[in-house]
Amino acid sequence: MISLIAALAVDRVIGMENAMPWNLPADLAWFKRNTLNKPVIMGRHTWESIGRPLPGRKNIILSSQPGTDDRVTWVKSVDEAIAACGDVPEIMVIGGGRVYEQFLPKAQKLYLTHIDAEVEGDTHFPDYEPDDWESVFSEFHDADAQNSHSYCFEILERR
């Protein structure tokens, strides 16, 4: 099963200049909980913004210009990325925008964090048809001392 995991502000903004323009430790914990011990696929820009392999996960970098870091697996196509994951129950696609666009048609599940923030962004989550998805989990949280904005975790499964 292919799943996408993303944090989205208003207007589906997911990033600005290779960074997330908010401070939500709870979302980072949600991300870790849902990706640990699963292969993660990301684009080169996302890889560069993280700066290191995510521990406890097979890191697969999709790029037309593969790098030389041998701590991760470099691939040039969506099919190659899927094959590099091996026989696993769930593959997690973690961004960025172009990689989400490439995998959305193949995805069966979306793990979304909806952030109540209007922020400037240069990267967006692809538009998706809500009628194609069923919400199977939703959990709202107010902003607090650690988390700069209110947010809602949601899991959607393709109908």
Rank of each mutant, 00 (worst) to 15 (best):
M92H: 02
E17L: 03
R159N: 10
G67Y: 12
Q65R: 14
D144M: 04
E101W: 08
D122I: 00
A143P: 05
A81T: 04
T46A: 02
I5H: 01
G86K: 07
N59D: 04
N23Q: 10
A81L: 02
E80G: 08
P130C: 11
E17P: 02
M20A: 00
I60K: 00
D70P: 15
G51I: 12
D131K: 06
S64M: 14
P25H: 06
R12A: 03
C152D: 11
W74I: 10
V10Q: 02
A107I: 07
E90N: 03
E101H: 13
P39F: 08
V75N: 03
P53E: 13
L36R: 13
D144G: 11
I82K: 04
P130M: 11
V72T: 10
R159H: 09
S138D: 06
P55S: 14
D144N: 06
D69M: 05
I82A: 04
S135F: 08
D142L: 11
W47K: 08
S135K: 13
R158I: 05
R98Y: 15
R44I: 04
R98Q: 03
E80I: 07
H141F: 06
S63L: 02
P105M: 09
Q146L: 07
P55D: 14
Y151H: 11
R71A: 12
Y151E: 00
G97R: 05
D11Y: 02
A19S: 08
Q102V: 11
S49K: 00
W47V: 05
A143V: 08
D131Q: 04
D70W: 10
I5M: 00
A9Q: 02
Y111V: 10
T73E: 12
P105R: 09
F140H: 07
S3T: 00
E48C: 15
I155Y: 03
G56V: 07
T35C: 06
F103P: 06
K32V: 07
P66L: 13
N37F: 11
S148W: 01
C152T: 14
N34W: 08
K32I: 00
V136C: 11
V72C: 14
M92E: 00
H141I: 07
I41Q: 01
A117H: 06
P21V: 05
E80T: 09
V78Q: 11
M16Q: 06
S138M: 10
R33Q: 14
M92G: 01
L62V: 15
P105V: 07
E139C: 07
I94V: 08
F140R: 14
D70Q: 11
F31I: 00
